[in-house]
Simulated scan of single mutants.
Amino acid sequence: MDKILSVSNLTKRFIMHLLNEKVIRGCSNISFDLYKGELLGITGPSGAGKSCILKCIYRTYMPTEGKILYNSNSEGMVDLASAPDDMIIELREKEIAHVTQFLHTIPRVTVLNLIAGELINKGVPENEAMLETRSLLAEMRISENLWDAYPSTLSGGEQQRINIAKSFISKPRLLLLDEPTASLDSKSRDIVVKLIKKLKNSGTTIIGVFHDIETMKMVADKVLDVTEKQIREVTKELVV
């Protein structure tokens, strides 16, 4: 089995220069390995550093210490903790996607064009990209009369589903999910769970932050508890 990601002693500290150099801990001494098609669920109390781990891997945050070795298709083995910015940008465009808790889009770009653009930017012909986007939107039960709307006009739950569709459509090699089902009703959650399983089966490696333990257990292969810094295999009896 191909090892996709190896994180060792990942630590992030923030220095508050306006507060007498006060040091705030984001995450500390996080280590795990992840293989192709696996999903690692991250759990822990609010403020424990769950989202910080994802942001360090995506390089929204520059890690303070540690290594994040990513086995990329285009560049071979890359340490995301120290790779140059232009390489990180290229990997985001080609291989790594991040679903945040909030949807940020260019104003006056419709739902359909926003999602299809992810494929078009990767060289997929426009007609094919539009067909695939319409199919995914229908699968996610996003009403067709919203496809030509601007995402900023939609409800929170609709925006979250658009956010998920935007990152899922290109089938990234590594997918980072930050509370992907937090704003969704039970039916929408079940649809997203189905899509996550489909992505895993196609070979996408996934790291997901979850507060909903039952949802996490439906999709995760193993769990990282950031408080205990322990990895556990997921079983029906798992209690976090």
Rank of each mutant, 00 (worst) to 15 (best):
D2K: 15
D2H: 12
K3S: 11
I4W: 00
I4D: 00
S6N: 15
S6T: 04
V7N: 07
V7E: 03
K12T: 01
K12M: 06
I15Q: 12
I15H: 11
N20V: 00
N20K: 05
I24L: 11
C27G: 06
S28G: 04
F32S: 09
Y35F: 15
G37M: 08
G41D: 06
I42H: 03
G44I: 10
S46C: 12
G47L: 12
G49F: 00
S51H: 11
S51F: 01
C52D: 00
I57W: 03
M62E: 15
M62K: 15
E65D: 15
Y70C: 12
S72G: 07
E75I: 03
D79Y: 02
A83T: 14
P84W: 12
D85K: 10
D86I: 13
I88W: 11
R92Y: 14
R92V: 01
R92T: 04
K94L: 13
I96Q: 07
I96F: 10
H98M: 15
Q101S: 06
Q101N: 11
H104Q: 13
R108L: 09
A116V: 09
I120T: 12
K122L: 15
V124Q: 06
P125H: 13
E126F: 14
E128Q: 14
M130Q: 07
M130R: 09
M130S: 00
L131S: 12
L131M: 12
L136V: 04
L136G: 02
L137W: 01
L137F: 01
L137R: 03
I142H: 00
L146D: 04
P151V: 09
S152E: 14
S152D: 13
T153V: 12
G156M: 07
G157T: 09
E158V: 11
E158F: 04
E158G: 08
N163C: 11
N163H: 05
K166C: 04
F168T: 01
L175D: 11
L176N: 08
L176F: 05
P180K: 03
P180T: 09
S186T: 10
S188L: 00
S188A: 15
R189K: 15
D190V: 00
V193N: 06
L195E: 15
L195C: 05
I196S: 03
K198V: 05
K198I: 10
S202P: 01
S202T: 15
T205D: 05
I206S: 08
I207C: 10
F210Q: 02
F210M: 07
T215L: 02
M216L: 15
M216R: 00
K217A: 05
D221L: 05
K222W: 03
V226R: 00
E228H: 07
K229I: 04
I231E: 05
E237P: 00
V239I: 12
